[in-house]
Simulated assay, not measured.
Amino acid sequence: MSKNSKVLNLKDKINGNEVDLSLCNLTEVPVKELAAFPKATVVDLSCNNISSLPPEFCNLSHLVKVDLSKNQLTCLPDDLGSLVNLQHLDLYNNKLHVLPVSFSQLRSLKWLDLKDNPLEPGLAKAAGDCLDEKQCKQCATKVLQHMRAIQEEADRAREKRLLREKELERKKEAKQKEREAREKEARKREKAEEKEKRRKEYNAQMAALAAQEQQQQQKKKSEEKKKKNGQPAADKKAAVKVAPKPQRSVVGLMLRLLLLLLLGLVAVAAACRLTDLQREAVCAPVNAAVDDGLVWAKEQEVVVRQLVHDLSSAVKDFLESAQTSKN
């Protein structure tokens, strides 16, 4: 039977509020067609080859009783708990290992059969044998309790995970703020260092300009001083220190020679005049020269006195004129 034929014949499968789709060799649930009949609250899908339920199956919230026994179901939709009106669920002889956590939200569920499924041990213990009506009702109650416990544990795990994530986020934000604070402090320190560097460079430039200006002023004063003196100071020192040296040495030598010669003449004159050598022929010209000198000195006495008088008058006039100009 094709899907089109199933859709066309779905009305033939409805009897009051019941839809019988068992033994139709179905591999999937005709969700859209079932949704078109909200008054059909009981659906029998047993003895087919259905391996999974589509997520849209959970939108059939009007369903009250669903029979999925003897199919190939390996899992159920995660939102199965949306079937809030579901009271009777038959999952006998499928391939289910676990149930979705949302199964705990099926608060209207009163009857459940999970026999002949490879359930995990905890779920199998809660499901029990379900051999009669009473045991299937107990199965619904205990499985709901079991799934609520799993739901609570999942909620706690999720809450812990959220707390961990919040804590990690808080630490991350704290580290981010700390890093930003360090970067801000580093930028502030760099700005302060840069400002200090610019200040030092400015002070160095001002000092260099001041030194250059002072040097220029000193150079200008030196040039003005050279202009006033008419000769560089270095040339004057050289003239004073170097040039006169040969003159002073020659003049000193000549003075020394004249002094020695004069002393020698005086010694000879004294020896010829005051000792017994005056009778010797050698001293005769010396004595004659001394006598002539004495006579000449007496003759020049008047001239010398006049010269000394004139010299004294000239010195007196010079001193008076100097005193007058000073005043």
Rank of each mutant, 00 (worst) to 15 (best):
T141A: 03
M254T: 07
V242K: 08
L265N: 12
S46M: 08
S312A: 13
Q323M: 09
C58T: 15
D90G: 01
L259N: 05
V43Y: 01
G122Q: 08
N25L: 04
G230N: 05
P246A: 12
R273E: 14
H97L: 09
L21G: 03
Q212R: 06
R199Y: 05
S69W: 01
T275C: 10
R170G: 09
E173H: 04
L263M: 09
Q231I: 08
A124V: 03
K137D: 00
L86R: 01
S22I: 10
C75P: 00
A238M: 07
V31T: 11
E28Q: 09
K200F: 06
L119A: 05
A233D: 09
Q215N: 09
A154P: 02
Q323F: 07
L26G: 08
R107T: 14
V308N: 05
A239Q: 09
A322P: 00
A288K: 09
P77H: 04
G81T: 02
L168N: 13
A174Q: 15
Q151Y: 06
L294W: 06
V302Y: 05
L163Y: 03
V19H: 00
T275G: 14
A210V: 04
L163A: 15
R148P: 08
L83D: 05
Q212T: 04
K326M: 05
A140T: 00
V282L: 14
E299F: 02
N48M: 10
K177R: 15
L294A: 10
L83N: 02
Q218L: 15
K125V: 10
K236S: 11
A157H: 04
L21K: 02
K220Y: 08
K6S: 14
V29I: 13
E56R: 03
A271Q: 04
V143G: 00
R164L: 13
Q231H: 04
P118V: 09
C136R: 01
N117C: 12
N85E: 11
E183I: 11
Q212G: 10
A239R: 05
L258Y: 05
G293A: 13
L68T: 03
V101L: 11
K228F: 10
A270D: 04
N49Q: 15
K172T: 13
H97V: 05
L68H: 00
Q278P: 03
K171C: 10
N25F: 01
A210M: 06
I150K: 12
S249L: 09
E223H: 02
D113L: 01
A243V: 14
A36L: 11
L144N: 01
L209R: 13
